[in-house]
């Protein structure tokens, strides 16, 4: 069960036009929320490569937030729909890896929705707290042998894996 002292580390990818501005607005309006989300600005939620999320989790993040403009309101017309598609695909993969779906949440917030974004952050933090630490990086360390075995396989087939130029 969750440990009260557990403060999850969460990385948030926020789009430049809506959700980052929503976070700005939450600030201007002094809407207090949990301090666990470390915000990284991208131009569009469509920029969020699923590997960013995996990278964050592998480096010790307990959760990830992806936030964009509302469907139909994307600054780049429709790229948030692409973010949404990738998100579901990623959830599928994460599920296979045993990562609870509440750890990675996709959120829509317009530049006028500081309150909604703050609420979404609080919800994500609460959800992740309830789940407890992910400890991916630690598991990797413990499973060093397995990783090394994988690495050997990769090295063995290095040539085959290389992108032809």
């Amino acid at each position: 069960m969750s440990d009260d002292s557990f403060e999850p580390k969460i990385v948030g990818f926020l789009c430049n036009w809506c959700s980052y501005r929503a976070a700005d607005l939450a600030g201007t309006a002094r809407i207090s929320h949990a301090p666990n989300v470390r915000i990284i600005r991208v131009m569009c939620s469509g920029r969020v490569d699923p590997t960013f999320v995996l990278k964050a989790l592998s480096l010790g993040a307990d959760g990830v937030m992806i936030a964009g403009c509302h469907p139909g309101e994307c600054h780049y017309i429709e790229q948030n729909y692409k973010a949404m598609r990738r998100y579901y695909m990623l959830q599928h993969t994460l599920k296979a890896m045993g990562v609870e779906e509440q750890r990675v949440q996709l959120v829509w917030a317009s530049a006028a929705e500081g309150q909604q974004l703050a609420d979404a952050i609080d919800k994500l933090v609460a959800d992740v707290k309830a789940l407890g630490p992910l400890g991916w990086s630690k598991n990797w360390a413990e499973n060093g042998d397995r990783i090394r075995a994988l690495e050997d396989i990769v090295n063995e087939h290095k040539e085959a894996l290389e992108v032809p130029r």
């Binding site: 592998s58 993040a61 990797w140 990783i147």
Partner: peptide, 22 residues
Amino acid sequence: QIFAEIEGALWDAVPPAGVPGE
């Protein structure tokens, strides 16, 4: 740039010891 930013943001997380390439 973004990978570095993620890594920087998680400077205080458990270091991924034993993970090659990090």
